[in-house]
Every structure is written in C-alpha cells, then in structure tokens.
Design a protein around this nucleic acid. Structure first.
Lengths: 238, 238
DNA sequence: AGGACGGTTCGGCGGGGACCGAACGGTTCG
DNA sequence: CGAACCGTTCGGTCCCCGCCGAACCGTCCT
C-alpha cells in the first residue's frame, strides 16, 4: 500500500498541464467570452506564431477543453461546455487576488477596462457591475436566496415565467449557480437561469456587445426594462 | 491591442502548473482527506525520493496551495483552506469521467475501495454513499433545496439549530454548497453546513474513521441518530 | 488560372524542471 | 554520547515541451 498512488493523479496532472502553459491559458481566458474564435485571432491575441498556436489548439481539443468547428479555411474553437468555462473561471478567480500592477497602461486600455468592469459576459451569463446589480436586485426582491447557499426561490421562478424567459433544464447543469466575479469579487448569477437571462437580454436588445470584445452596454430599452422588472437604478449601470 | 494578453494568464498558468505534475497531483489528492500529512508519508505515498518530495512541497507551499506546520523533526502539510480543496475536487471531478480501468486489482484494494465508496470525508465534509444519503434525506425532508440551485431552507436552518449544531459563518464561505462526488457522480452537501455536520458526526461518535485513511464507518449510535433525525434507513449505509 | 490567405506539418533549437543519490543539519530516543 | 530518523540542500543528468521559420495544402476571391 505504500505507493497507493491515486489512479486519478495522472489524469489530474494531465488536465492541469493543459492549462499550465501561458499561451494556452491566454486562449482559455479569451474564450471565456463564450464566442468562437479562429486560430488566427487567437494567435494574434496570444502573440505567438500561427504554427505554435495550431499545436496548442490540437492539445486543447484532444484534451476535451475546446470544441472545434471547421468552416472552409477557418478553424473555429470555443470552450467545450459550461463545465469547462466554470473550471477556468474558478481557477482564474483563485489567481485574481494576486492582481498586482492592475493599473492600466494606456488610455484605451483604461477605457476598455472601465467598459469591462461596467458589464460583460462571462461565458454565457452577465458579469461585471451589471451582473452584480442584477444579482443583488434578485436577492433584494426575494427572487434569489444567497444567505443559505445559492438558489432561486419560488418567487424567482415566477419572475422568469412572467418575464417570458423559459428555463430549460439540460442535463445536470444547475438552474442557478454562483459565479465569482474577479473584478467585483462577489458572486453573481450563473447556471441555466443566468444564461437564459443573458441570452434574453441580448436577444431583446436590453444589452448590446461593444465592438468584438466581451464587454456589453445597457441600452435605453434595457434601462427601462431592468428598472421596471427589477427596480434597478439606471444610473448605477452607467 | 493585438497581443492584449490577459494579465491573468501568467498567474493562471502558474497555478495550473503547480497541479500539472503527477507527483504533486497525487499529494493534493491525498491531502483531500483534510488531515495533515508529514513529508515522509507523502513521499512514500507518491513513490518518490524524500528529496524530490521536499522540493515539491516547497513549491506547493510557496504557491499558497498548502499550509505547513513544523513540529520537531516533522513537517506537516495540509491543504491551505476550503477554497483550495474545492478547486482540487472540481478538477478531479472533471477528470473522473475518464475512469477507465476502474476495476480493483487486489482483494484489499477492493475492500478499501468498497469502504471508501460507502463513506468517507471529502476535505471537511461527508462524501460517498453516506454523504449522498444524508444529502438526499435533507432534500426529501425539505431541509435542502436542490431543484433551483443549492441552498438550505428555513426548515433546514431549524434542523441544525434543533440538533445543536451551530453554523458559524466565516468569511465568504457559503453556508451550503454542492460538491460533486466522483464515485457517486452526484452532488452532496458541502460548505459551512457540510463541515459542521461532519465535525459533529465525528465528535459525537456517529461515525469513526477506519484506519488512517479517509474512509469512515457509521456506528450503531450513528445509525440510530441518522435514522431518528433524518429518517435514513440504516441498511442503506452498510 | 493565379494570387492571397488561413492553417498544418516538420526539423531544430533552447530552457525549464523532475528526478536521484550523497552529504549535511536537527530532533528524538536509547 | 551515539545511533536512528526526518527533512533539506546541492550537483548532475535527462527528458519534455514551447517556440520559430520554412515548406506545404486547401480554400476563397478576382
């Protein structure tokens, strides 16, 4: 029994090894926006040669972290599923506390940072101050219970129903889940409900994406809707 | 903006790198039992020279994953906190689906495996069939809500109160949290409530540890208590 | 058809890190 | 005090892996 090395260890090491490279880590973080990127975009983003990135993508796909979809001469990749997104998120959140030198270097970086802090998508749900505001409003109105865990209340289910947002349970994914935001350091709504809400917000024009990044902006219609349905002060979102 | 490499990437890669070695992974998994191990025990467990393991421990401690405590000529290490335990758990759970060749090799391995499957600690809470049984009983009795997330109900808070188990909120740790068990593939109760319950169970003799492993056994007193307080059929725990 | 472009494969280079054994310092016990 | 024991430090070896540029293949556009 000495050397009862847990059979899980090799797999765990292999999985962590996929994330343990700075270039691959940068890719995973970029893909946290939930969209599909081409290999070239990722190569430019990470600052390495296309050939290098191609190999990285091969490993990430083989390891099950990414899903790929080939279209013509393009190779699109995205995070394999919500589970992987949660994993990367969680690891990143553990790291964030050590965010030394967090000051922006340039003006446009400052602008982009501010926009991201205001509102963004985190894989498939809302994050940033916007995500926090929504989550807080849910909690304050008794739609979400955070004091004894993290779950929607019956009133919360009603709210989604009345807002015309359908919650479809899929597989084992929880209806509501806390996602720890790494700019706000506070939990916000993720899971099926978070994804449905985000999708609804983008579909109905409550929010729009800014540029091609994952930052989002609340529209005038969105301010009205969020104010009316959840009592969120529009000023807090600007 | 090309090469807008996320500032989090280096930290993420470094963190993952700590887990990306098979020997270190084996240590982390072993430490998931929540107890403190000596360097020598871990070296034997992992099957490497003491000198090698010493370096690994240095890195894990420096990286904040382990906490150390020196006593005489011994160096005890344990997981730094519940957050780290959750991280390792979650990564291991992602790996587990690929549990090919899960058959036990020897009789005693089969015995140990069966005991672990029956009941064990997972860092600081109960897992295995025992953990599932408790969680299911909580849910069936309306003490825990799993359909819309994962949270104790008011009745659940009452139950802990009446059982004389105090729940002390500490820092940001959630009162109730789902931990995905990798033998049962189902969520069970973790967080402050899970830890308090496990501690109470061990303190009052509802359960006892088997040998020096993390497997636990329900005692006669435990069967009575769990049956009386939660309506759990004692036979299901054997 | 021809040229531009996205992605992949391959050879070669370089660095980091996991491992061991030997030697050493501290602690415990006879 | 000396012997056994636990852990650490150090030198040295070896292998893995991330990186690039060049050549190549397939797709898209004109």
């Amino acid at each position: 029994m000495t050397t009862t090395r847990d059979a899980t260890a090799p797999g765990l090491a292999r999985l962590a090894g996929l994330i343990a490279d700075e270039t691959r880590a940068a890719c995973l973080l970029a893909l946290l926006d939930g969209r599909a990127w081409t290999a070239g975009e990722l190569a430019r983003h990470a600052g390495v040669a296309a050939s290098t990135l191609s190999e990285h993508l091969g490993k990430l796909v083989a390891g099950g972290l990414l899903a790929e979809e080939r279209q013509g001469r393009h190779r699109y990749v995205r995070l394999a599923d919500a589970r992987v997104a949660q994993l990367v998120e969680e690891l990143a959140a553990q790291v964030a506390p050590g965010d030394a030198a967090r000051r922006p270097r340039t003006l446009r970086e400052a602008g982009a940072g501010a926009a991201m802090a205001r509102g963004r998508t985190c894989y498939d749900h809302l994050a940033g101050r916007l995500g926090i505001a929504v989550t807080d409003a849910f909690t304050a109105r008794g739609l979400l219970r955070q004091d004894t865990g993290f779950a929607l209340t019956d009133a919360g289910l009603d709210w989604f129903d009345r807002a015309g947002i359908r919650l479809v349970r899929t597989g084992r994914r929880p209806l509501a889940r806390a996602c720890l935001d790494w700019t706000e350091r506070r939990p916000h709504l993720a899971g099926v409900a978070g994804a449905a809400l985000c999708r609804h917000a983008l579909d109905t024009g409550w929010c729009v994406r800014i540029g091609s990044e994952r930052a989002v902006k609340v529209t005038a219609a969105g301010e009205e809707a969020l104010s009316g349905l959840l009592g969120i002060d529009p000023v807090a979102l600007r």
